[in-house]
Nucleic acid binder design. Structure first.
Lengths: 318, 318
DNA sequence: CTCCATAATGCTCAAATAGAGCATTTCCGG
DNA sequence: CCGGAAATGCTCTATTTGAGCATTATGGAG
């Protein structure tokens, strides 16, 4: 079954979604004045994909990146806008702490909600969502030619954006972006947009800052992955300073998830899982009662190799 | 930050981990007499990676593949054994039902535990694990030069193979294979093996059937992904016939997980999530009381877009 | 024809978790 | 000394798990 025919020859690039976070917002490393994600060629000198990525990100940001995982590989034909050769992009998600980007590199850290304003629900549903997106998607659903397509569109829109009273699911960031793309509501859609908006009366509203190529889609993929991951792996700590208060930790998680959490229950969760230990120090600049400082208990990375099982296991082999 | 230097040119191949299952064992589609996973070049005629994969798998197996998802992209330099050019392999996980493989294609379905005998714990710990693997890994840990390396090795081995009383985690199939590879206990390790076993007195024991290149590693990746996925997405049903009994469903899940499940609790789980509905028919050839036949409720794919939240959400924005 | 092994199904009970909130404590800035 | 803002401690109830017992149906063996 293996083809011995000549294999296609193409270019491969590595592309990084580097995430940092502070109490206010998650931040991502960008280039080109915030319009692109950092990317570089996959050179043959690299031992592996991941080491290739580490090499050039660290070279450019002079900043060790802690946690790195492969995100997704993209290769749709219409990815490159008029490029000569087909390219494969292998994307990675990396977690670090924000350090000033060396200005000569053209790199800068940006609030990720700048690109996805509808993803931030910490203060409730943002205006852009209720006033622009919801009506635009409903209109888009109506313009489908076939009845089943209309139903399919409105159903997808309802699920992704909780249009019919469903609970908001913060992990659907990719589906939401793809829906806006299909509906021609983001400028990246380009040609597709005109077709999708054929029946629309108004021009495309501005939904967040666009990016070059499909970088915003890749970023949405990274957001979805990270939002899912923080729930079952202690990766948030890669984004935290060595010592932090529980409120600081909660604020970072809230920033990533784009949702508010119940303070006492959040603390109980962290405590029960023994994710942190006290440093012994306190910090007073909290605006209220001084808070204890904690550090991540690195040991859990070894101990709790075990993830949460959901299968009703049988204790004894029957 | 974007490099404008010439990008590396390389070949890309698609490689499939096609999984089916019966009540006894999960099965995977292989070529080359069971020694390789089906793979093919990523041709420029393909619209996207996924459509390229679908195209040639369906062409060869004449079999529609239902669920397909991207697995991982491999590109380590020492992947290809002496190949001329560097290759990138983009692997996919696909779920189907087993259909006789057209013999002219050289394809065949194989029990996946043939390649990973230590992964099947349905009848308790298999002999190969306790009698071969455990002692070999302990010995390997001892041969590390530095004390910290010895501790690191034995700790990793203990977690992956539950050597110190930890609960077995079926999702660690990849880590287990990688450990055996590092320890030179699988023939694929090749050159690395001799170094790792420098101090061993006996030759490498035979641990499962080997595969060409790094295909067994890719298969282990697929197993890990599938074992994790069945816990939070209703993907098992892609492997089931149109109608099935609850025991059949359970046996397939057990085959995939390599572990026994508690029957009543498994049924309760399926019932509570409303994953299935009765067909109305019964089947008598069960060896006991006749069983009801069920079918998958496809509607859940839309309804239950919501996955399980673990974050202690706050109902009202404060 | 009865007994039995094998499953399918129904139910129960206790322990562990998750969801919501109330109550106190402690420090800061008037 | 007082009010505001957080940090912390606890409580209470509703679910969800983990383990098992009990009952019901069939086919086959004696």
């Amino acid at each position: 079954m293996r083809e011995s025919a000549a294999e296609a020859t193409l270019a491969a690039e590595l592309i990084a979604v580097m995430v940092a976070a502070n109490a206010t917002a998650p931040r991502i490393l960008t280039v080109e004045d915030g319009r692109a994600l950092p990317s570089g060629p996959f050179a043959s000198s690299h031992r592996s994909l991941q080491s290739g990525l580490r090499a050039w990100v660290e070279e450019r940001t002079r900043h060790p990146l802690g946690y790195v995982e492969q995100l997704y590989t993209f290769a749709d034909r219409d990815r490159t806008s008029g490029g000569t050769r087909r390219a494969i992009s292998i994307s990675y998600l990396g977690l670090t702490r924000e350090a000033p980007a060396p200005p000569e590199t053209g790199a800068s850290w940006q609030d990720w909600y700048r690109y996805f304003p509808w993803e931030d629900r910490r203060e409730g549903e943002p205006a852009v969502s209720s006033s622009l997106i919801a009506p635009a998607l409903r209109a888009w659903a109506k313009t489908a030619p076939a009845p089943w397509a209309r139903r399919e569109r409105s159903e997808r829109a309802a699920i992704a954006f909780s249009l019919s009273g469903q609970a908001w699911n913060e992990e659907f960031s990719l589906q939401r972006y793809e829906l806006l793309y299909e509906a021609g509501l983001v400028p990246e859609a380009g040609a597709a947009a005109s077709a999708a908006r054929a029946h629309a009366t108004s021009p495309a509203p501005s939904l967040g800052t666009p990016m070059l190529h499909d970088h915003r889609r890749i970023l949405a993929t990274g957001i979805a992955r990270l939002r899912a991951k923080i729930k079952y792996r202690p990766v948030v700590f890669e984004l935290m300073p060595p010592a932090f208060t529980l409120l600081e930790l909660q604020l970072v998680v809230e920033a990533l998830a784009g949702m508010r959490l119940h303070k006492q229950n959040f603390r109980r969760l962290v405590a029960r899982q023994e994710l942190v230990e006290e440093t012994g120090a306190m910090i007073a600049e909290t605006g209220g009662r001084p808070a204890r400082l904690f550090r991540f208990r690195r040991a859990v990375l070894r101990e709790r190799a075990a993830s949460g099982t959901k299968l009703p296991l049988l204790a004894q082999p029957r």
